[in-house]
């Protein structure tokens, strides 16, 4: 018998992760919410966590994230994702519980719930999208809006004398003993996207190891409300957000510090 072997001529290098649902998202073209979703889903796939993960979605542009991820999911009230996640995690300490929240949800209306989840050292992971604006309601000033940035509710530019300065969530939460992991990453180019993914992977690992509260702040774009093309918006993240929001590891558990740390650039 003669067997003819056919050599493979190509290999699969990258495909859409299983933890993302097949559904088309409602996000605007070029919105990095989609990128962040993909990264989280890739990490869930790679750590084989899809079947043991519970997502708590928030209110804002990412309100439908509960159906964009193919995992068990809840939709929390505005700002309350960390409280809801606490309830879920306390009932299922052996499951992976994460929230996906924007800056209005987490840093404005939900700051108390977020801070106290960190203070309790709640063993959950928070994916925090900072795009310096309220997206869903149409581009109002967020607590993360840059000084001087024009929004529909700061039409003359954010006046820090009237509204204060942008809130630095990663630094703020790093100061809390219950926080095990707090870093800031960006998604403005491929290299930074890959660094963001690594951080998300570390955050979930922190939770798997039961080390406490973990948060990854992701600098993101909002082309629609910034009134830019998607590529212009990414340049705006690089040129305007990075100087205000330095990337870096603000807190990393000692046991994980041997791994290569993200570069502050």
């Amino acid at each position: 018998m003669v067997t003819q072997l056919v050599e493979p001529t190509e290999k699969l290098v990258y495909q859409r992760p299983d933890s993302l649902a097949e559904l088309y998202t409602h996000y605007c073209p070029g919105c990095t919410h989609g990128t962040a979703h993909r990264l989280v889903a890739e990490v869930l796939d790679e750590l084989r966590l899809q079947n043991d993960t519970i997502l708590v979605a928030s209110v804002g542009c990412s309100v439908f994230s509960y159906k964009y991820f193919d995992v068990d999911a809840a939709e929390a009230a505005h700002g309350r994702a960390c409280a809801m996640a606490t309830g879920i995690k306390r009932v299922h300490p052996d499951k992976i519980v994460f929230t996906y929240q924007g800056d209005g949800d987490l840093a404005s209306i939900g700051l108390a719930e977020t801070m106290h989840a960190a203070i309790r050292g709640e063993n959950i992971t928070v994916i925090f999208i900072n795009n310096a604006i309220y997206g869903m309601t149409g581009g109002q000033m967020a607590p993360t809006t840059l000084p001087g940035q024009e929004t529909t509710s700061s039409p003359f530019g954010r006046d820090v004398r009237l509204t204060g300065n942008p809130i630095h969530v990663a630094e703020l939460l790093a100061a809390i003993p219950g926080t095990a992991y707090s870093v800031r990453r960006s998604m403005h180019d491929a290299r930074h996207v890959l660094q963001a993914k690594k951080a998300i992977q570390t955050a979930f690992t922190v939770q798997q190891q039961g080390l406490g509260f973990s948060i990854v702040e992701l600098l993101s774009s909002c082309p629609t409300n910034w009134k830019m093309t998607p590529n212009e918006a990414l340049s705006w993240v690089r040129d305007n957000m990075l100087p205000v929001y330095p990337l870096g590891d603000y807190k990393v558990p000692e046991s994980l510090q041997s791994t290569k740390r993200g570069k502050r650039d």
Binding site: A74, R80, A83, T86, G87, R90, A112, E113
Partner: peptide, 23 residues
């Protein structure tokens, strides 16, 4: 599970979470 929450707002949302989790 017993948890003294930071506020009633948090308490009810923790209940919402725990009930969603099937408790």
């Amino acid at each position: 599970v017993f948890l003294q929450s930071e506020s009633e707002v948090a308490a009810i949302n923790m209940v919402y979470g725990a009930a969603s989790a099937g408790a």
